[in-house]
Nucleic acid binder design. Sequence first.
DNA 1: GTGGTCTAGACCACT
DNA 2: GTGGTCTAGACCACG
Lengths: 130, 130, 130, 130
Amino acid sequence: MNIQFDKRDPIYLQVIRYFKQEIAVAHLKPGQEIPSRRELANQLSINPNTAQKAYKEMETIGLIYTEGNMPSKITENTALLKNIRTELIDEATNNFITAITPIKVPLEEIVDLVKKKYLENENDKEDTND
Amino acid sequence: MNIQFDKRDPIYLQVIRYFKQEIAVAHLKPGQEIPSRRELANQLSINPNTAQKAYKEMETIGLIYTEGNMPSKITENTALLKNIRTELIDEATNNFITAITPIKVPLEEIVDLVKKKYLENENDKEDTND
Amino acid sequence: MNIQFDKRDPIYLQVIRYFKQEIAVAHLKPGQEIPSRRELANQLSINPNTAQKAYKEMETIGLIYTEGNMPSKITENTALLKNIRTELIDEATNNFITAITPIKVPLEEIVDLVKKKYLENENDKEDTND
Amino acid sequence: MNIQFDKRDPIYLQVIRYFKQEIAVAHLKPGQEIPSRRELANQLSINPNTAQKAYKEMETIGLIYTEGNMPSKITENTALLKNIRTELIDEATNNFITAITPIKVPLEEIVDLVKKKYLENENDKEDTND
DNA sequence: GTGGTCTAGACCACT
DNA sequence: GTGGTCTAGACCACG
């Protein structure tokens, strides 16, 4: 596991987003165990309190659950899990539209730009494949 | 002038973004006077200090300038002004791609979604036209 | 008459300093007439209020005097005039020492630097002589 | 820490100048932690907002940096740090020469005066040593 | 009127 | 604890 933190957003939110993404692409499956708070903090070199905050938030959302002293697990509420992908996509798209609309960019120009950056990004990833 | 503030971002940043957008769509032109700090604060119902902070930041960026105790003006550095539109668009697009990529959404689906939301948004605006 | 205004200091203070310098080098002599407030404002392209403020301040100091509707004149208090040169030099030197002392620069280095910059400045002036 | 504030300059600028001087004489070193805003405000008996303003300005200059909510630190850009001493000295000397030149004081007289005041100042400091 | 600074005190999010 | 933002209200110098 590895997260490229940027400093614009709080770390705990970036951790949550990471888990959501892993769920959206089915790298994390219902009932699957996730690292303990301490492990996570170690792996990501973040403050244990930050890890704790992320997990607590995810529990509140219902994304994960913890029974007794067992490792936390991804929820088995598959409906909720299925929504995550849509939720992430919608959120990203809404943010985008909200940001781009006031600048009055023609739809065509937007689509072209999105396509271009999307493909650039794909190529970058291929270049850094192992 | 009117800004719909959300509480996620600091007000002074939203003010700056607003000015950038107004510049990007050429509602604000090089050398044009902008409202005084007090005036802006009144119009937006924000504290004069918050307006001052936004203006000060815009000065350090080079977006506006102030001579003596005269009202501040939009910079006459047209190169800088021209970049603003591109900068805003790029930033929005990059944020979008960065957010959407890890979810592995096919390009086609993304484009469709963008088109759909864009048009929805357009219609909303028409509905509220006078 | 011509003053190169910088924006760090208030204009009216720069005007006063200019008059003091002209007195210090005896370009302005006791009893000599000086431009009216309006004339000064025109020549320097400054606000008449600013010229007025400078003159008023100079009157308070006793540097100039005005009788009735006559043009203002340089004071005939020669003792005061003689002090101006010393005053300007002392002020400049004190400011310099106050600024340079906390940085713990050896006297030798300071003297060398002053000499160097002084001579550079002399040459610049010669180059722009008419 | 102690700063003798004068009322001519804004407090926050005097704070910045103080930090620059401390850097110039190497009392503050690259990466070194500096007091929190609140602490500084307490020590100097100034408002926390004023301390904040000074620190924010130093950040934009690149003099200090802040990660997360950790105490701010002196930048590790040693090139920038090295320049500060030169910058301070040059600025002081330029101001001095600019002020003294129009009075047409012979170089010799200037040097003598600088020497005299420098030494006076040294003695003053010795007198107040513990 | 303008910009600029400052204080006092509060609140928030993050670690 | 930390940094960051915001409000309310005041004062000053400048033009």
